[in-house]
């Protein structure tokens, strides 16, 4: 595997390999000096055409903790404003000598397109509504650590909210299913994708019906522009039907965990202060982000996946 573009491309074995590797990186991050020389001399460029706080910063921190050099491409100050095409931008950066592109773009499939134009590895940090594989790795790792299990057989993951426009949901459905979890989607019909019948999931329109059998409650962010687009009548109705309030928290089994990929819309999908929840994993999701991205960069540039990239040398 030269690229990490989707969970399905990664496959079950790759998923387990990266989750195990993440455990090493967690230990590295706990050291008094949390830095290893593993990727010395490698260059990682982050190419973000959409806004991001945690994904971009955690990729950059991850690269630096592995001693890679980092380049940050900020669209607003680049030659994209002079009309330079994506292809020319990628080829220009490739010519400078980079080993990995970390890319976020509003269009589905951009990472696949870019991997045609460069010899470097490509990591998908979110393409449109399609995939966000490192977020799914973060979420699987966080659940693995919190529940102390390697596989999710017998666990039910309930994803609530705007499934249709969510790359996080698509990547998580693949990843959690691969590890054996049952996935239930809860959303108004307007926020479900038309092809949901072909997905390995159960669908419900009533959150209250599924809470009692939920082990992992995953709240998605409702983007306010969805209201303008007519997907939901108004935010208060959405909050009433699909928001997590104290009454709904009480309906969850006591050992159930609550997750959210951030950024959170307090008062819409999250009506309780998550810091008051007994089993919120939201902070762990952020803190595990760096270790997961270290594992991804290490695997692509130095680990098992790098075999295809390495020059032939005598041992």
């Amino acid at each position: 595997m030269k690229h990490l573009r989707s969970i399905d491309e990664l496959g079950h074995d790759g998923l387990v390999r990266l989750l195990n590797l993440t455990q090493h990186m967690v230990e590295v991050n706990r050291r008094p000096i949390p830095k290893v020389p593993a990727l010395r001399g490698r260059t990682v460029v982050s190419l973000f055409f959409e806004d991001s706080t945690r994904t971009r910063l955690s990729f950059e921190t991850a690269a630096k903790r592995l001693s890679a050099d980092t380049m940050t491409f900020s669209v607003s100050t680049s030659s994209v404003n002079k009309g330079e095409s994506l292809r020319d931008t990628v080829e220009t950066i490739t010519d400078m000598g980079v080993d990995a592109f970390v890319i976020r773009h509003k269009s589905t499939g951009t990472p696949w397109q870019i991997s045609e134009w460069t010899t470097a590895s490509v990591v998908n940090a979110g393409d449109g509504w399609h995939q966000h594989p490192t977020q799914a790795l973060v979420d699987c790792f966080t659940v693995r650590e919190a529940l102390g299990v390697e596989r999710f057989d017998g666990l039910t993951l309930t994803i609530v909210g705007d499934i249709k426009h969510s790359r996080v949901a698509r990547s998580n459905i693949s990843a959690f299913s691969m590890l054996g979890a049952k996935v239930v989607l809860v959303a108004p019909p307007t926020l479900l994708p038309p092809d949901v019948a072909h997905w390995p999931v159960e669908v419900s329109n009533r959150l209250d019906d599924v809470l009692a059998r939920t082990d992992i409650l995953y709240m998605l962010r409702l983007q306010s522009e969805r209201m303008a687009q007519g997907h939901v009548p108004n935010l208060r109705e959405y909050a009433e039907l699909f928001g997590l309030d104290a009454k709904r928290v009480a309906k969850l089994p006591t050992r159930a965990v609550v997750m959210h990929p951030g950024p959170m819309n307090r008062g819409v999908e999250m009506l309780v202060d998550p810091s008051t929840l007994p089993n919120s994993l939201i902070h762990q999701q952020v803190s595990n982000g760096v270790a997961v991205r270290m594992a991804v960069l290490f695997d692509l540039l130095a680990g098992e996946s790098s075999a295809a990239n390495l020059q032939q040398v005598t041992p």
């Binding site: 590295v28 290893v36 593993a38 390495l310 040398v313």
Partner: peptide
């Protein structure tokens, strides 16, 4: 201690970490 991430042959052959440092 697992030394795989400090090895000098990273990039020459794939490095697979063994057990975790403790």
């Amino acid at each position: 201690i697992d030394v795989s991430m400090h090895r000098d042959d990273i990039g020459l052959r794939p490095v697979v970490p063994g057990a975790i440092s403790r």
